[in-house]
Structures are given as C-alpha cells and as structure tokens.
Amino acid sequence: MGLLKDVVKPILGGMTLTARRAANLGKNIVTIQYPDEMREQYQRSRWRHYLTRYDSGLERCIGCSLCAGACPARCIYVEAAENTDTERYSPGERYAVRYEINMIRCIFCGYCQDACPTGAIVLRKDFELANYKREQFIYTKEMLLEKYPGQNLEPYRSKVTGVEAPIYTG
C-alpha cells in the first residue's frame, strides 16, 4: 500500500506538472537568446562614450575639461589647444588635442554627458566592451570621435551577430 502512496503518487504529480508545462512549450519563454537576439535597451541606458560632431563636421568638444572635473572616477584626461584659422577642429578658440577615457575605470554614470556644455560627449548603447588587455581600454580621441556627424545614432547592433537591439518604448 505504501508503494502507491509513497512512490507512484508523487511521480504522477510531478509528471502532471511537467506535462502541463510541456503543453505550453514555445509560449512564455523568458530566456533571451543573446547574442542571436538582443534585449531591448532603455532609452537612457548608458554605455560606451562617443565624441560627436556638428553637422558641419566640426568637433563639438572644446576641451574644457568639465567632464574630467565632473567624473567621479577621474577616468577622463583632456588636454586642450588653440584652434588656428588654418587648423580648425572646433568652433571657437579651444579644442581638445588629447581626449582619453579609461573605460575600465569608468562607471558609466553619465556625469560627463551632463557636464558637457556643448553636448560633445554622449554615452550610447554599445555595451559589448569586454577585452583582454588593460591597454585596450584606454579609448583615445580617435576611437571616441565620430567619423561623421550622427555616425552612431542608429540602434545598436551586436558586434557578434549584427542583430539590432530594439529600444524599449513601452
């Protein structure tokens, strides 16, 4: 008698649950198949920095170092220089001749973006930043600066599969 109560009944109970789940197979899957599928990103999620340009192609950054002043991790280094009429990088007198971010120390708080008076430094959605060597994390001005205005405005695409990460709107 004990066999039915102690062995068969629990097994049947368990299998019933499994069967019920099996009936729902394919529905309500919570797992996101990253990297084949990208999780939606929030509008204000902050990852990799970019230095943007004006539509004219001039750099927005004026090398004012306010981002470095605002940075709680002290991971930004800016060196400024003076524009000349023959060599013009940004409107006005001053531009950043060196701009470096230590991505490994950065905490992606976005204070630099808040502090920036010209909207030059922005944090976009590129979260795939892992790498092998410390030196690879010093992002220089060449790496940070957009090649053309609005280069990285489109939704982020995975480095691995090229799948687009949707922006969460709801």
Partner: peptide, 9 residues
C-alpha cells in the same frame, strides 16, 4: 598657461 589645464586638473 593658456589652455594648458583647468584649475581642477
């Protein structure tokens, strides 16, 4: 000193 640093640097 022109443009060489900001005070907080």
């Amino acid at each position: 000193y022109r443009f060489r640093a900001r005070p907080w640097d």
